[in-house]
Design a protein around this nucleic acid. Sequence first.
DNA 1: ACCTGAACACCGTTCAAGT
DNA 2: ACCTGAACACCGTTCAAGT
Lengths: 230, 230
Amino acid sequence: MANTERAIRSRRDRPAKPALTRQGIVDAAVRVMHADGLDKVTMRRLAAELDTGAASLYVYVRDAAELRAAVLDELLAEVDLSPVAAEGDWRVRLSAVLRSYLGVLLTYPPLAHSALLTRPSGPRYLDLLEALLSVLHQAGIDDRRAAWAVDLLLQTATATGAEHVSGSDDPQDGRSSLDTLVEAATAGRYPRIIALGAELFSGTGEDRVAWAFSVLLNGILATPRTDPPT
Amino acid sequence: MANTERAIRSRRDRPAKPALTRQGIVDAAVRVMHADGLDKVTMRRLAAELDTGAASLYVYVRDAAELRAAVLDELLAEVDLSPVAAEGDWRVRLSAVLRSYLGVLLTYPPLAHSALLTRPSGPRYLDLLEALLSVLHQAGIDDRRAAWAVDLLLQTATATGAEHVSGSDDPQDGRSSLDTLVEAATAGRYPRIIALGAELFSGTGEDRVAWAFSVLLNGILATPRTDPPT
DNA sequence: ACCTGAACACCGTTCAAGT
DNA sequence: ACCTGAACACCGTTCAAGT
């Protein structure tokens, strides 16, 4: 394209190229993720989207991991924190917030994956943390216990989200491990796995996760932190 | 190198190039991982190690993810399952097996990361599963509950391992989230986070993980699975 | 200061062609 | 059947050079 034509285009045919900002980059990343999936959110692809070179992004973002963390924080705006101030059983309300968080992660499971590695630290994540701590406080759980409990709760939710990444419909992997199992079972190994059988894979994801959160809440109530040695 | 020289070398100066096998590939992967770290365990690097082309590996391994899963399963041989048959409190013994598993993951934390995505399904993983189910059975926990419990226990251990991936000593990230925090605190946001303060990051990894496993075990004991609707 | 093109040093996977 | 070289379609990050 000739220089003159280009100058005309930039003024009339399309919006003026917006100045590069950190927020603009994150917004573009969210757009690309919704359009083409998270694995297309690369420095190069984003740079193309913003009509610049990949190197330019490094002025606003330390590296690709930080960018993904920022994208997650952006998405965390969708978590429903309203149960914190609602009426009713605190367990139900805490569970509701955690399920909402998990729901957001499940929109883009690969994000959960990166959330386990790079702990998010943006404002929305802090909002979520504050919300959970607030409910635990309402429940009368002491601060020291709550501090560790919130970590465990978020870890469980995040890990559950991350596991759903490869929720592909590929029966091959299951088959091969089943073969191993059948062979070994004949040899008398793995009696417990055989006894449980399909029970190991039973239940919907929702039922399992609801049970898991119940386990956690009951466990947290039942497990004080011992006093530190003096 | 001339063809003749090459022929001589292969007979005399170095061990004969071993035939490619799946196990040989996995062994090479473990070697490379110990020598240069998991992120050097790539199809190309492995091929070079085995004196062949990357394409050749695809005869024995579906893709890179399957290879990493196989490497993890190999490492799982080091998990100490002896507490299963030992004397004493089942909680202590279950916890010991889980800690041993976590210990192996922490030798190469990036492996834990990939374990969350691609559920391992090799023989050592099945051994671990059987071991945990066996202790839960000894504890008198019913089968349906044990089936879900073992999943939650392994998920927690694996996620804990995965989180330690970026255990780098980079204070920058913590700093920036702390800044956000201080600003927002002035505005009266995040009262609970402020109240807890350093408590959120307190304790050694070992203490936290011991507490987490206690929470899980207490929670599992306190949380039956409701009967399925008829 | 900000932005860029080009380069560096890699990836996983496929495929036609050889043995 | 097994193995290979070469190609395809990408990556993240750095850096000298421009504006």
